[in-house]
């Protein structure tokens, strides 16, 4: 049994400690907002926050998550009120939408560490997240919009 703290809730999970967090979230706990894209930390669809860092859950074993705080897209805000979620809706960023949870979780770390990210900062932070539909321009714009929103209150 491994105890995980996910979105402020404690889960006791009966799984091999080597199991990637992604599959425990999706198959055992039932939080499917975190996506499987590549399984080898190339695409960023599975990004969750582990003690605030944007880890790729497809390669992060649950043993590493033990005793740490996991936040998934479902726990980013209760009412879609995170500035990034609002900006994503304002600019209607999504196309197929599959990668967007990972994009938002990556962007959230950027915005926390840099209140006023430049285009270069955004490129640096977001190059690990693939969007096959090509919504990158709107993602960039949404991050800047969210930064403004965050600054204004």
């Amino acid at each position: 049994m491994i105890t995980l703290n996910i979105n402020k809730k404690t889960h006791r999970v009966d799984a091999d400690p080597n199991t990637p967090l992604l599959w425990v979230l999706r198959d055992i706990i039932g939080l499917v907002g975190t996506k499987y894209g590549c399984g080898v930390a190339q695409c960023g669809a599975c990004v969750v926050h582990l003690d605030g860092e944007a880890v790729r859950s497809c390669v992060t074993k649950i043993s590493r998550a033990q005793g740490k705080k996991v936040v998934t897209i479902e726990g980013l805000s209760e009412t879609n009120s995170h500035p990034l979620q609002k900006a994503w809706l304002d600019l209607d960023v999504s196309q197929c939408g599959y990668c967007q949870a990972g994009q938002i979780m990556s962007a959230a770390v950027l915005l926390r560490e840099n209140k006023n990210p430049s285009e270069q900062d955004i490129d640096d932070a977001m190059a690990g997240n693939i969007c096959r539909c090509g919504t990158y321009l709107r993602i960039r714009e949404a991050i800047q919009l969210a930064a403004k929103d965050q600054k204004n209150g």
Partner: peptide, 16 residues
């Protein structure tokens, strides 16, 4: 997008 809010909050929308 009518599913915009569900996409950005991680609702179960996809086959997987």
């Amino acid at each position: 997008n009518v599913e915009g809010a569900k996409i950005i909050s991680g609702k179960p929308l996809f086959g997987l």
